[in-house]
Structure formats: structure tokens, C-alpha cells
């Protein structure tokens, strides 16, 4: 049953990706990328990674879609057809894909108890969380306490993203923007 669910989800994922490639109407592309994120979230659920699935559904399908729509409203609604066929992008994609597949050959098999993810600190986290914090969600314990430094870095990155967007496309420099408009 799980195999069937996984195969169905992956099949739908590939179909969505191909549909995104074929589409020229960007509104449909944005909607389909939301579908793609939701399918990814479902795959994470089947892997029992509910916290990741939650994030993917909220950020990938929710916020990203809105931001992409916002970007689209600022630019164009339709993708331009490429003028001529160029082999370089195809080569880059094929080469990257080949390297990625080659990389997976070295990975531990799915669900293996001997994979580095299981043998390193994860077992300790699982063991110690009930006594250290007494909370049931180990993911939260790892994110905010054992790996608090990393999470602090992540939050600073999110903050930096806002600073970057605001300094690039306005929000902070609104007055200057208006002044320039007036000069024109």
C-alpha cells in the first residue's frame, strides 16, 4: 500500500513538473508550482516528516505562490518563446542530473538502520529529550535547544531576506522613490 501511494505521488509529481515545463501561461505555472509543493508535502507525510511537510505546505504552497503571483503582476503574464534552440542549458541540466543520480548511489538504502542519520547523534536526541526537556516533540527539542545556534542563524537569514527585499524593491526608501518620480 505504501509503495502504491509513493508511486502515485511521484508519478503526479513528474506529471506536474512536465506540465510546468510545457506551459507558457505563467498564471497556470504558478498554480501548478503550488500543486507541486503540496505533492511534496504529501510525500514528506508518507516519510513521517510531518514538521517538514507542514513547512512545505505553508511556505511552498502558500507564501511562495502569493509572492510568485505578486512578481508576475509586476512583470509579464506569458513566457516568451525562446528564439532558437540552444544546447547549453540542456547540457547543464543533463550533467547536473547525472551527477545527482551518481550521488544517490552512495547513499544508504532507504530506511536503513545503518545510515549516518540513524547512527550519529539522532539516537542520543531521541533518548535524552524526555529527561532533558520532558516534551514529546523531539523535532522541536532538536531545533530550538540542541541546535539552537543553527535556528538562530536561520532566523537571522529570514530577517536578512526581508532587509534585502526591502532595500531592493522599496518599502524603506519610499520617500526617495517618490522624489525620483517627481523629478521625472
Amino acid at each position: 500500500m505504501e509503495l502504491f501511494i509513493n508511486l502515485t505521488l511521484f508519478f503526479m509529481l513528474v506529471v506536474t513538473a512536465l506540465a510546468i515545463l510545457r506551459m507558457r501561461h505563467l498564471f497556470a505555472v504558478v498554480a501548478l508550482s503550488g500543486v507541486f509543493s503540496l505533492l511534496c508535502a504529501l510525500l514528506f507525510v508518507t516519510l513521517d516528516a510531518v514538521d517538514v511537510a507542514f513547512t512545505e505546505a505553508a511556505v511552498g504552497a502558500g507564501i511562495s505562490t502569493v509572492l510568485l503571483l505578486g512578481t508576475m503582476a509586476l512583470t509579464a503574464r506569458n513566457e516568451k518563446m525562446p528564439r532558437s534552440f540552444s544546447p547549453v542549458p540542456l547540457l547543464v541540466v543533463v550533467a547536473t542530473g547525472a551527477v545527482l543520480i551518481y550521488g544517490t548511489l552512495d547513499m544508504a538504502s532507504f530506511g536503513s538502520a545503518l545510515s549516518p542519520a540513524q547512527t550519529h547523534v539522532a539516537a542520543q536526541y531521541l533518548e535524552r529529550t524526555p529527561t532533558d526537556m520532558g516534551i514529546p516533540n523531539v523535532v522541536t527539542a532538536v531545533l530550538s535547544s540542541y541546535r539552537g545556534f543553527d535556528t538562530l542563524g536561520e532566523v537571522v537569514v529570514v530577517f536578512t531576506a526581508a532587509v534585502g527585499v526591502l532595500s531592493l524593491i522599496g518599502g524603506l526608501g519610499r520617500r526617495r522613490y517618490k522624489k525620483e518620480e517627481a523629478q521625472e
Binding site: I63, V66, L67, G70, T71, L74, M133, I135, T140, A141, S144, S145, G148, T151, L152, V155, V158, F159, A161, A162, V165, L166, I169, G170, G171
Partner: peptide, 26 residues
């Protein structure tokens, strides 16, 4: 954990709204 999660939540919510404002204002 509650304190830092609150910090994370406040920053993420504000950043997302700020980015939305920045895009939508233009």
C-alpha cells in the same frame, strides 16, 4: 524553547508580511 519559538514566530510572520507589502506596493 517557548521564548525562542516566540522570537522565531514573530520574525517569520513580520518578514513574510513585509515582503508581501514590498511586492504588493509596487
Amino acid at each position: 524553547i517557548i521564548a525562542i519559538e516566540l522570537g522565531v514566530g514573530i520574525t517569520v510572520a513580520a518578514v513574510m508580511v513585509a515582503i508581501y507589502y514590498a511586492f504588493a506596493s509596487r
